[in-house]
Amino acid sequence: MKNAKITFLNNAVTLDSNKLFNKITNTIEIIDKQDLVINVLYDNCSFSNLSMVIKNSKVTLIEEYQGNIKPLNMEIEISNDSSLFRFGLYENLETELKLVRIIKNYGYYQNVLLDVSKNSVSHEEETSLLSPLSRCDIFSAIYANNKAVKDYKTKFSHQVVHTSSDCKIFGICNDFAKMTITTDAYIKKGASNTKATQEGRIINLVDTASGIIFPDLHIDENDVEAAHSCSVGSVNLDHLYYLQTRGFSYEQAKSLLIKSYFTPIYQYLNDKELIDKVTKAIEKRIG
């Protein structure tokens, strides 16, 4: 595994360990790199547009944000047999992020994100699957509390045959937070043998929290496999009671349960350092 680091500070690149960033086109270029791990830090970033192209490469991209982040569009093109595993850690993020992904020629994109930010986040991710065998898997775990407003829109566009997308989103809403999760999968006419699945779940921990999900499939082709399921629920009172009978206070029991809702994320992580990072971020926010 080779490691690369890129830091965007204000309106400049202050660190680019492997010289991957093209300043003229504002593009991170990754060509013919196998097993490359890139840590990108957006620190008080004021870029509004950035992009990345990945060709003939297998890449892990870890994106973290700190300080004041201006609304940011980030476009990634994955082509020529490439695969990208992107992990997004939103610890203190407060901004609008727009992620555009274009997947061509056997490309594979997997996005795992953990949002434990106490601030409001507006997040839009649009993935276009443009060649046969382009694939995309998304897993998001989102926590909102206080008066945070979190708006997550995820869109998939299946343009050709034999493409697949899978989207799993889990939201936990506390206090007076508002969370809206929207997932849309479009399957174009002619995009047969396509697979699109969506699963969304929100738990409103208290009555004052309001989380809602809008899953939607827009299918213009007969020969496809598509399914969605979603649920909005509240905390399981029997679980709370059981934990309390063992000595946990109401608040302690609740945070144990909140943490338990995050555990599915670990099945997507196998790097020890990343696992620790996730655990720390969750501990720090939920206790």
């Binding site: 309390q244 009978t245 206070s249 144990l256 555990t263």
Partner: peptide, 24 residues
Amino acid sequence: MSVDERAKAGLFLALQYPPEIPGV
């Protein structure tokens, strides 16, 4: 007393149907 205070005071109940709590 709250449930947890009772537990900490020394009461223990093994439930007839202990719930399953995935992730804990």
